[in-house]
Amino acid sequence: MIKIGVTGWGDHDILYKERTSSKRKLSIYSTYFPIVELDASYYSILPTSNYQKWALQTPNDFSFVIKAYNGITLHSNSFRSKSEQKKMIESFIHSINPLQEAEKIKGILFQFPPWFSCKRENVDYLRFLKEEVNEYPVMLEFRNRTWFYSQYIDQTLAFMEKEGWIHTICDEPQAGIGSVPTILHPTNKDVTLIRFHGRNVYGWNNSGQENWRKVRFLYRYNQEELEKWAKDILKLQEQTKEICILFNNNSGGDAADNAIQLMKLLGIQHGPSLSEQLGLF
């Protein structure tokens, strides 16, 4: 099974009429795609009422990939004791419980920052984290290339397999130490996650420029690039039961278009045809 979606549901103009209420967007989104990445959870630990609402606004077979709170993935420079980390993780897990009860969590995505390099203390932290969230499917994404250096790559993949981490395969700019190569290696026989970040090398690294966080994902995949990916995805299907694909290249509004394009290449239809859906709203 292959499920394709995008990051967030609010900013994909192709899916909505100009005056569509933000309260209706998730339910409309779910007619196009069966899965979404929830990234609001990265910026704060949200009230449980938010997750209750989102569970009710989506079909029974809809799935969320929930991006872990940034304090848990060490994006903050603030020091926290082990007990403080445990409390923070506990609060985060409690907040998402309504989606777990609704059986709509495909996994929790732990995306680590560029300074989270391949060293013993970080391996130990991953083990600690896995123990704390053991009842949930956990997806691991690195932003530091050292994990996939030739002397570490086999150990990194073996670690993920042994510890129960779902490898997040990335398509992103090859822009030095703060980016990772595309490693077509599932570490979980049930689920594999693929995230498309675009290939904007200049935007990825140029953190000093205005609106850097938006510009870094400014990229539109062309037909040839997606056709190559379609072939790779079909090969990956032989190694894992389900592949979840999320497009994050939405700085220019390209994510939804590219997601629909890849669905067509793979012969996937979710709900009514695109032309029928666009005429509904």
Rank of each mutant, 00 (worst) to 15 (best):
S91I: 00
V138H: 05
N97L: 11
E227D: 09
Q151V: 09
S81Y: 02
F116P: 01
D13C: 05
Y136W: 12
K119G: 03
L157E: 08
F116N: 04
E210L: 08
N77C: 04
P98E: 10
R19N: 14
N97R: 15
E163W: 01
L278D: 13
R220V: 00
D61V: 06
A256E: 04
N258S: 02
W115H: 14
S179I: 10
Y219I: 05
S179T: 13
T168W: 00
T58P: 11
D171E: 12
L140E: 00
C118Y: 09
S22P: 00
K86G: 06
L184V: 00
T168R: 07
Y29Q: 07
Y69E: 05
I28Q: 08
R213E: 13
V191I: 14
R80A: 08
G176E: 15
E172I: 00
G279H: 13
S81R: 01
I153D: 09
N60G: 04
E90N: 13
D232Y: 11
A68L: 01
I169S: 06
I108N: 01
G253F: 07
D257Y: 13
N258M: 03
M1P: 08
W115G: 13
E225K: 05
L226K: 11
L56I: 01
P59R: 13
Y202T: 15
K23G: 00
E242C: 12
F92H: 10
L236R: 06
Q239E: 15
L126I: 06
K25R: 14
I45H: 06
Q237H: 06
K214S: 12
R127M: 14
L38Q: 03
Y219K: 03
Y149G: 02
Y152V: 03
L15Q: 03
F79N: 08
Q269R: 14
I169Y: 00
I89M: 11
N249T: 04
D61N: 15
I194T: 04
F92W: 07
N258R: 04
S30M: 05
V180L: 10
L157R: 03
H12V: 12
K53M: 15
K130Q: 14
L246H: 04
Q174V: 03
T20Q: 05
G178M: 12
Q100R: 09
Y16L: 06
L193G: 02
F148S: 05
S22F: 03
T156G: 08
L109Y: 04
Y69N: 14
E84S: 12
I183M: 07
Y42T: 00
V215K: 14
K235V: 11
V36R: 04
F110P: 10
T73I: 01
E141Q: 04
Q209P: 00
Y202E: 13
D13E: 13
M1A: 15
K231E: 08
K86M: 11
S273N: 05
I28K: 11
T73Y: 05
I166K: 02
P137E: 09
I194W: 01
R127E: 15
E132Y: 02
F92A: 14
E163C: 02
L274E: 11
V138Y: 01
M88Y: 03
G198K: 05
I194G: 07
W54V: 02
S83Y: 00
I66C: 09
